[in-house]
């Protein structure tokens, strides 16, 4: 049997998380097809055709695929799913929106956030905000999985030139329509791909104070993240939230400033290689996971860091 990986993209650019999903697919051991559903997305097809370790890039180009609406993509995936034993996507908001809908029309139980592939039907995944790792086994004929990008290295790209094919577009279902999008724009590295992340919490006290973290981030070529409290307070936008219900990150260095370390926050960053915590409360739980803790007022420590780096 074969494995199908659903590509994530914006019709221009293949998203990196797709490469992590391909690595998970490679671990399953079967031939891999990558499916691109989009509109005027030929550059994405070209990019995907350079992924090493895959067999075919399948593309279906239609106007109603432009905004990646789950209602429109699901019938297209369903139309070819029986050829596959596994259907994978990255566990991003896009993959999580789409794959359960696909699983339901195939009458199979999806498995979310796979972080380890034991064999073709056995997987490890975090539950309870990552406080427990479950080993689960699926008896469904088609395994529908979302995979955690931080748990799999990105597949190599560059030299491969894989076969390309097409899939017929299904008819539009028109249950939903796209109205608008407000996407964060930043010159800094993307949170889920960054090697260093500087993250701020309620301790920052205001949106203006985040300028301190942006300055530090620019010194380190880092991305900037935040706790839910900082997002809820309106200091920063939602796409910066790290945690159980935000983004899952695992950079080589995570610097948490003014973050207490609630389990829901730790769920999103505790697999970082090195964790630094700056907090004025020496009993803050974040110090229990930090490799290097600095008990200090962040308004003293962060400017000093900026100056001395």
């Amino acid at each position: 049997m074969k494995t199908l990986v659903i590509a994530e993209h914006d019709n221009q650019q293949l998203k990196n998380a797709t490469l992590n999903a391909v690595t998970a697919a490679i671990k399953l051991g079967n031939p891999i097809d990558v499916l691109i559903l989009g509109h005027q997305c030929s550059t994405v097809t070209e990019q995907a055709s350079t992924i090493e370790g895959i067999n075919t890039v399948l593309t279906s180009d239609a106007e109603h695929f432009e905004h990646q609406l789950a209602e429109e993509l699901t019938p297209a995936i369903q139309s070819i799913a029986q050829q596959y034993s596994h259907v994978l996507a990255a566990a991003t908001t896009s993959g999580k929106n789409l794959l359960p809908r696909v699983a339901a029309v195939l009458d199979v139980q999806a498995i979310s956030d796979v972080q380890e592939i034991i064999d073709a039907s056995t997987f490890k995944r975090p539950i309870y905000a990552g406080n427990v790792i479950a080993t689960v086994q699926s008896s469904d004929p088609i395994k529908v999985l979302t995979v955690r990008a931080t748990a799999f290295d990105p597949a190599a790209t560059g030299s491969a030139q894989v076969e390309q094919g097409t899939v017929d577009a299904t008819t539009p279902v028109k249950l939903s329509s796209f109205v608008s999008e407000a996407l964060a724009e930043s010159d800094r590295p993307e949170l889920t791909a960054a090697d260093i992340i500087v993250s701020g919490g309620r301790g920052l006290g205001s949106g203006e104070s985040f300028d301190l973290l942006y300055t530090l981030a620019d010194k380190l070529n880092a991305a900037v993240g935040a706790s839910r409290a900082a997002v809820d307070a309106g200091y920063v936008p939602n796409d910066m939230q790290v945690g159980q219900t935000g983004k899952i990150v695992a950079p080589s260095l995570y610097i948490a400033a003014g973050i207490s370390g609630a389990i829901q926050h730790l769920a999103g960053m505790k697999d970082s290689k090195v964790i630094v915590a700056i907090n004025k409360d020496e009993d803050a739980p974040i110090f229990q996971v930090a490799d290097y803790g600095l008990v200090a007022d962040l308004f003293d420590a962060v400017p000093e860091l900026i100056e001395k780096l």
Partner: peptide, 13 residues
């Protein structure tokens, strides 16, 4: 909707 890149607005029947 809260999506990875920011916010998206959809209209549903």
């Amino acid at each position: 909707r809260e999506i990875d890149g920011g916010l998206q607005t959809l209209s549903l029947s």
